[in-house]
Design a protein around this nucleic acid. Structure first.
Length: 612
RNA sequence: CGGGGCGUAGCUCAGCCUGGUUAGAGCGCGUGCCUUGGGAGCACGAGGUCGCCCGUUCAAAUCGGGCCGCCCCGACCA
């Protein structure tokens, strides 16, 4: 492509509405332009990148047995109503009516459509397993679109759906996709982690997220410093060592299949041991302190000149109608996903003012020294008083005093207060005391961009939509499904996010819009011009993808554009053509090499191989 | 939806607080000259409903109110 003819509008200045680097650079380098909040035009360079990403995805999806289809973007409401998601998905779905007043939604995902297709066509176990995928526009009316392509309202996604006759076959399909995804992200050249993730409302057996590490990312994860454990903070378990005794509450809960009684039996000895430790220590005595109008943890910590880590707070929830009083360290937050699982609760919500009043609890000053009245009320309602694992990280903490304007310092577990049990229900932060639930080594907290997500769906959709097949034994059974997504446009942003420098984007060869950026420094110089033209033709003949800067601009202008756009190899035809030499610059390292004209193709070829 | 910020030329912004000729700059764009190894220089030129509406005023980019749009933080997020 000749730049003199190309539509590549580059900018000298950062667009004012861009915050993250990928957004700034993709706009400046002429890859995208905003249409409206969360909606983007993808310009020729961006389209090239998107196509390359799509093709890599296709290659491995096909290799692992998936077949490409195209489903409509416009989807009828009946299917969503049938699966129960018409209301669950709610405002995130863009809904509209046709001229006959029938309801439709722009597809945010296609489980319903594809399940409908399959239930009509798949009748026998002989038709299974099957895996279908598509690459297309998706629509989600995000509450707050942000960071350019990272969270857009319309975006390009690859979504695949597998159908199997039983759990085992479904698992095989799932792990085929797992492997395919690894190959895809490896080939794209992303630095990513595969993390255990929450299955969300889908409620399947397992789920993995593929996350590109980047500070601008919205996914938070915990990664063990030693073993392969890596999980989203949505589900990350926390371990702790108490006098070298490992304690991983969530693992123990899982072992006893979330039977709270059995759990308490199992952790009894550990907590006994902890109690002994505390007793041996000469910890300061509790002390009531006056804290007028200090209701938040920030306020209290500041007022008492304590670190947030030395305070504790209370959260009151209602789980299936039962009041749940939770104490946790002031700098931690309740992870509702973990709490819900730990309690095997179907419904969970924060308590309202009414319940607090009923339990005689003073908002902002709740502590573990509860009145007899409160204790009885909680018991009566079959509630629980739970300490989060974070309470074990400090021997004494400052809690509310259960009366307005007072807190109590130096409260020590067992010595001063009692809890029904200790659970792991806070969101992991990767702080020092937190240990890997698998090997008890220290963990790191990292942020990343979710670029892929795979789910084992089970029969969630096949049951709701009655997608069955007749098995070998003649019995009708539900199809076992999996679904697998990759954010194509998000990958474009994520790649930039982890590969750029002060001059612009640095594309990996695999998804670069072109492989070679040929620059004619001074097209008015006849020799430079003719050699550049010749090189351009010959490079194209040899099958290279070339962006040729033939514009009559000053050299600096063209160099700046080239660095900004970020094509991996620059071939610079300049004044050294007098000695039959041109320069080859590798964008990533900014290293320039002078190369004899007759060796140029060999050199380019070698450089490309090196970059692969 | 709550909190904060912004909206003036294609882009990035100044002017607004303290109302008053013809609304400015840099970049970009057009023409010419000059220049050709890191976003040059000179000259001339085009380009604006100061987001929209209402109000205050002799007079509004400027003050007040409403609306719209965009960005950030939060809540939300199969």
């Amino acid at each position: 492509m000749r730049m003199s003819k190309a539509f590549i509008p580059t900018l000298k200045e950062d667009p004012k509405d861009a915050e993250v680097i990928s957004h700034k650079l993709l706009v400046r380098a002429g890859f995208i332009r905003k249409v409206s909040s969360g909606l983007y035009n993808i310009l020729p360079l961006g389209t090239k990148v998107v196509e390359k990403i799509k093709n890599i995805i296709r290659k491995y999806m096909n290799e692992y047995g998936a077949q490409e289809i195209i489903m409509p973007i416009m989807t009828p409401s009946e299917l969503w109503i049938e699966s129960g998601r018409w209301n669950v998905y709610g405002k995130e779905m863009i809904k509209f009516k046709d001229r006959h007043d029938r309801d439709y939604a722009l597809g945010p995902t296609h489980e319903e459509v594809v399940t409908d297709l399959i239930r009509k066509e798949v009748k026998s176990y002989k038709d299974l397993p099957l895996n279908l995928y598509q690459i297309g526009q998706k629509f989600r009316d995000e509450i707050r679109p942000r960071f350019g392509l990272m969270r857009a309202r319309e975006f390009i996604m690859k979504d695949a759906y597998s159908f199997a006759k039983d759990e085992n076959e479904a698992k095989e399909e799932y792990f085929k996709m797992y492997e395919a995804y690894k190959k895809i992200f490896d080939e794209i050249g992303l630095n990513y982690e595969i993390i255990e993730a929450d299955t969300g409302e889908i409620g399947g057996k397992f789920s993995h997220e593929f996350v590109v590490l980047a500070d601008s990312g919205e996914s938070k994860l915990i990664k063990c410093k030693q073993c392969p454990y890596c999980a989203s903070t949505e589900i990350a378990k926390i371990g702790i060592k108490i006098d070298d005794i490992p304690f991983v509450p969530f693992k123990i809960l899982e072992e006893v299949n979330f039977d709270l009684e059995k759990y308490r039996e199992k952790v009894k000895s550990i907590l006994e041991k902890y109690k002994e430790t505390l007793e041996k220590e000469n910890l300061p005595q509790k002390e009531e302190v006056y804290t007028p109008n200090q209701e938040t943890i920030e306020d209290v910590a500041k007022y008492l000149n304590l670190s947030k880590e030395d305070t504790a707070k209370a959260m009151v929830y209602i789980a299936d109608g039962k009041p749940i009083l939770i104490f946790l360290r002031g700098d931690y937050e309740v992870n509702e996903i973990k709490l819900k699982r730990a309690l095997k609760a179907k419904e969970l919500s924060l308590a309202d003012e009414k319940l607090l009043k009923e339990l005689s609890l003073e908002k902002g000053y709740i502590g573990p020294l509860l009145s007899q009245e409160t204790l009885e009320k909680i018991k009566e309602k079959q509630g629980l008083i739970i300490g989060d694992i974070s309470l074990l990280s400090k021997k004494a903490l400052c809690f509310g005093a259960n009366k307005k304007d007072y807190h109590i310092k130096n409260l020590v577990m067992f010595r001063d207060y009692k809890l029904d049990t200790i659970l792991d229900i806070s969101e992991a932060q990767g702080k020092d005391w937190e240990r890997c639930p698998e090997c008890l080594a220290n963990v790191n907290f990292k942020k990343g961009i979710e670029v892929g997500h795979i789910f084992m769906l089970g029969d969630r959709y096949s049951k709701a939509m009655n997608a069955t097949f007749v098995d070998r034994d003649g019995k009708e059974k539900y199809i076992i499904m999996g679904c697998y997504g990759i954010g194509v446009t998000r990958i474009m942003a994520a790649s930039v996010e982890q590969s750029f420098d002060k001059d612009g984007i640095i594309w990996p060869l695999s998804i670069a819009p072109y492989q070679v950026h040929l620059i004619c420094v001074n097209p008015k110089d006849e020799k430079q011009k003719s050699i550049a033209e010749e090189l351009y033709k010959e490079l194209l003949n040899r099958g290279y993808e070339v962006l040729y800067d033939d514009r009559e601009e000053r050299p600096g202008f063209k160099f700046k554009d080239a660095d900004l756009i970020g094509i991996p190899i620059q071939v610079i035809v300049g004044k050294k053509v007098k000695n039959n030499k041109v320069e080859v610059k590798v964008r990533k390292t900014q290293e320039k090499m002078e190369v004899e004209l007759d060796k140029i193709f060999e050199y380019i070829n070698n450089t490309i191989n090196m970059l692969k």
